[in-house]
Design a protein around this nucleic acid. Sequence first.
DNA 1: TAGATTGTTAATCGATTAACAATC
DNA 2: TAGATTGTTAATCGATTAACAATC
Lengths: 224, 224
Amino acid sequence: MSYTVGTDAETAQPGFEKPGEKLALGVAARLSRYLQVLIQARKMGKETISSQELADYTHVNSTQIRRDLSGFGKFGKRGVGYNVESLVNQIRKILHTSGQHNIALFGAGHLGTAIATSDIFADHGFRVVAMFDVDQGKVGERIGPLQVRHNTELREVIDEEDIVVAVLAVPSAAAQQLADELVDAGVKIIFNYSDALLQVPPEVTVHTSSPAVDLLYALYFYLT
Amino acid sequence: MSYTVGTDAETAQPGFEKPGEKLALGVAARLSRYLQVLIQARKMGKETISSQELADYTHVNSTQIRRDLSGFGKFGKRGVGYNVESLVNQIRKILHTSGQHNIALFGAGHLGTAIATSDIFADHGFRVVAMFDVDQGKVGERIGPLQVRHNTELREVIDEEDIVVAVLAVPSAAAQQLADELVDAGVKIIFNYSDALLQVPPEVTVHTSSPAVDLLYALYFYLT
DNA sequence: TAGATTGTTAATCGATTAACAATC
DNA sequence: TAGATTGTTAATCGATTAACAATC
């Protein structure tokens, strides 16, 4: 849909990615999944991992994994596998996500609280720096390391903390209006936990979490 | 990875799916996503929807959508689009998920409570019929329409209610042991909200929810 | 009719897989 | 050496896209 601006947009050599060139959608998605497994494997004290083990956890074919990785360099050791720690760093470099990213969380209900007190985002370099709610009864409350603020402060915080990502754990009915305010405040990525179909301008990406979709899919292959 | 047992496993005619034949992985995944948007569109009172509108919400190319659907019949009306209600039913038929499916939910913390009180599963024909926790302080508590039971009752409930799907909203440290018990009790699909890497036999499917992976992916395309 | 949108074709590109030499 | 696993090739299959006739 969108292309690299300027430099180096000629056809890429097959099987070899030029630095500075945008990855294919599929490759980027798969690398993100490898990263998740690697980070968890590292947590468990694993030092090396084979393409086959990665395949078992990600449901991606092991040849595909080796192929994806070998496009960027020879990261593995034959007969041994990949060093977990170094592969984490390599993939982070490829995905340009080595740094920390600040995110804002909306909704201090059960879901918002669950997100704020878990480390699912922190493990991947995302830091929840602010939490908002519209309920004055919740504003000021401390949840994990954060103090709940009122939505009216959102623009200020987004500017100050340089926030690009917003996570929405609010009721469906409130989601579109909040999305409009966020777009207006300069947020570029909205992670939507409600089931609302959000309308946003083309430069903003909405990702809607749909556990039921994943379940339907898994169930289909169980039923057939 | 697995194939249809018995009947009708010859090569499929391109662009035409024989009933009783297993869908390609990609088609099944995409149909599930169309379904989610359709169900939400129906909720909003929309009667027809075009392939272009579906494309905007699912990020799947509109030609691809028309192609996917036309493989099963002529569901649309030229110049008008697809009837939302009838397309929901058609896709449900194709995915064999027209009926109700019972699921069991584990963990009565913030996340478990959020899931139990939301309708994200109910809208798609999944009914949470039981909720479990290991904390005796929570057992007996009423959450939404459910009363929390102790994990020791899981086998009994799974047998009685014919449960194939378990949703895990428990701490990572507890996930593997619980997964083992569930596999033993006959559960076939485990939806894992913890970040643990679960080991299960090949006949069981684990789906691990990874919001951070989705964020990393979205962020990559924002950063480049 | 005029406008919109489906259904379908054809051409291209990326994903998948088996196989195996290279090498740790 | 023997065993394991990577890196890479080649062949096949499915996804993507543009284009457009059919038709509501």
